[in-house]
């Protein structure tokens, strides 16, 4: 564990908490892409199956359980509790275009052709693009609430901080994982446009609004 890794995890946790509390307290999931949230639930489920096979640490178990439970809690809020507020007309990204390539790529490019390893690889590939339906929704409506922008910023920062962690680990321990690094870079690059808007608009108190 190093500082970049810890900050990355905290940023990830913060993103999830921001999203849950936004939906819960505003009693609305307007502006949130349910499709991205479905993809995240698939990501955590595929990746954290090792919860039942290996013990790493209490920290590791607790974080995995929190990520899993909160992803399903988010789906419950969107699809059941506040379903009337779900903005489905703007959430039109076709997730099969992300799911199918992630499945094929995981079957082809992995460290070992075993069930757990392929599922881990699939979750890494899928996570790198899982935010696309949400970014597509923001670009379609041309705007995002500030709280949604904070959520996206925290979620985007998390993998960026993991990249620094991987640099640090390569430097101190001499080991690296190319699958995680390439996917992590792709994931972070997808947020770049948003990061720019966040810094230039949202942090200056303006609403995130895209030029028409």
């Amino acid at each position: 564990m190093n500082i970049f890794r810890l900050l990355g995890d905290l940023s990830h946790l913060l993103a999830i908490m921001i999203l849950l509390q936004k939906i819960f307290y505003s009693r609305s999931c307007a502006g949130i892409s349910a499709k991205s949230q479905v993809l995240f639930a698939i990501v955590y489920t595929a990746r954290y199956l090792d919860l039942v096979t290996v013990y790493v640490s209490l920290y590791n178990i607790s974080m995995k359980v929190v990520f899993l439970l909160s992803s399903y809690a988010t789906l419950y809020l969107i699809y059941l509790k506040f379903r009337a507020t779900y903005d489905r007309n703007h959430d039109t990204f076709r997730i099969e275009f992300l799911l199918l390539p992630a499945i094929v790529l995981a079957l082809l490019i992995n460290h070992q052709f075993s069930a757990l390893e392929v599922l881990w690889t699939f979750s890494i590939y899928l996570e790198s693009v899982a935010i696309l339906p949400q970014l597509f929704m923001v670009s379609k409506t041309g705007e995002a609430e500030s709280i949604t922008s904070h959520y996206l910023f925290a979620l985007g920062s998390y993998r960026g901080l993991y990249i620094l962690n991987w640099f640090y680990r390569y430097w101190t321990e001499g080991h690296y994982d190319l699958i995680a690094i390439v996917a992590g870079v792709v994931q972070t690059v997808l947020y770049c446009d948003f990061f720019y808007l966040y810094v230039t608009k949202v942090l200056k108190g303006k609403k995130l609004q895209l030029p028409a």
Partner: peptide
């Protein structure tokens, strides 16, 4: 999982 990265990462 993942063989090469320690299993600790999330």
């Amino acid at each position: 999982s993942s063989l090469y990265l320690v299993k600790d990462e999330l």
